[in-house]
């Protein structure tokens, strides 16, 4: 047993314990806090499995966006409530037996799959010169599997439209967090916000060579926007609704547009000519980063429930 394995076991143990606590903690808010820790631990797992791109995205989303969204929701939906009712359709022993069966089946199936032995990594490597980026994950996202990623940006757009459609009448992000944040918090934000914007730019630029890219950059920007929203100065309130909608769509539209340009240059959709691939990918990534940032921050900023403002200050 090497130290590496001991570390991996401890890490997996921590992730599993955190997951179990998050769902089963007697007090809702405790579960929510542990869930935030779960996200951070998962990003450690991605680091261990050699996926820093995922780790950056998970860290930015888990620490910056999910945390704020679930805490805000828990405040509304009874954060101190101790009762944690469960469905009792089946007797206890039967549900435990079913749980154990499910666990054994999953573990059994997963363990019979051996580590991937396909030659995909080599094939990705072989084609890299024609894609114009050195980061393999970026190459897969934007070039080899352009359709997937394009539609994913579409899913984000749909989620944003859904949240906007469910918005309470008269609700505006500017009205949601009205408090007098201590000067310390404002001061810290004034230092962190430029740092975050710089970090997003760095991740976007870095994405063609190393870990980073449009989603990571967008998530960091969105987290910064969430911080500002919490402090009562939401960036989303500064642009008109029309401009906001344009920013939501720009990633999806720009992705398609660049793909179509590739078609006119004689390729298939998203088959960029090698000479132009690098700048084309950067153009797509920049637009996608903007849309991801606006979408994720909007999911938080516009996510309040009807009548929030009249609920009174008692949590």
């Amino acid at each position: 047993m090497t130290l590496e394995m001991l570390f991996d076991m401890a890490l997996v143990g921590a992730v599993v314990v955190a997951a179990a606590y998050a769902i089963n903690a007697p007090v809702l808010i405790a579960g929510v806090f542990v869930y935030i820790v779960f996200g951070v631990l998962l990003s450690l797992v991605w680091v261990r499995l050699g996926a820093p791109d995922l780790a950056i995205a998970e860290a930015a989303i888990g620490a910056g966006i999910t945390g704020a969204i679930v805490l805000d929701a828990a405040r509304q939906m009874g954060m101190e409530r101790r009762r944690n009712p469960r469905l009792r359709r089946w007797p206890g022993w039967l549900s435990w037996a079913a749980t154990a069966a499910v666990g054994v089946i999953f573990a059994g199936v997963f363990l019979t799959v051996s580590e991937g032995r396909g030659d995909l990594p080599q094939r990705v490597q072989a084609e890299l010169p024609r894609v114009g980026v050195e980061n393999e994950v970026t190459a897969v996202l934007l070039s080899y599997r352009g359709y997937d990623t394009w539609f994913e940006v579409g899913v984000l757009l749909v989620a944003a439209l859904g949240v906007l459609a469910l918005r309470a009448p008269g609700e505006s992000p500017a009205r949601r967090f009205r408090w007098d944040p201590p000067a310390v918090a404002d001061g810290a934000a004034d230092m962190l916000v430029p740092g975050g914007i710089l970090m997003a730019g760095y991740l976007l630029w870095q994405g063609s060579r190393g870990p980073g890219g449009a989603f990571q950059a967008g998530a960091v920007l969105a987290a910064i926007a969430v911080l500002l929203t919490l402090l009562g100065r939401p960036p989303i309130a500064r642009v008109s609704d029309r401009a906001r909608d344009a920013l939501l769509v720009v990633g999806f539209a720009d992705f398609l547009l660049v793909g179509l340009v590739a078609v006119t240059l004689g390729g298939a959709l998203f088959e960029y000519p090698p000479a132009w691939a690098a700048p084309m990918i950067l153009v797509i990534e920049s637009a996608v980063a903007v849309s991801v940032a606006v979408t994720l921050s909007l999911l938080f900023a516009a996510g309040g429930a009807a009548g929030d403002a009249s609920e009174g200050g008692v949590p």
Binding site: L49, G50, A51, D53, L54, A57, E58, I61, I65, T66, I69, V70, A73, Q76, M77, G116, G118, L120, P121, V124, E136, V137, A139, V140, L141, Y144, R145, D148, T149, E152, V155, L156, A159, A160, G162, V163, L166, F215, A219, V292, T295, L296, L299, F300, G303, G304, A305
Partner: peptide
């Protein structure tokens, strides 16, 4: 490591957060 599943999971993470925040809005 194989970048293909990593890319799929990266899109998965972003989709998961957007869909679950949509679900949270509905619950709220």
């Amino acid at each position: 490591p194989d970048p293909v599943p990593q890319a799929l999971v990266l899109t998965g993470i972003v989709v998961a957060v957007s869909i679950s925040s949509f679900a949270i809005v509905i619950a709220r």
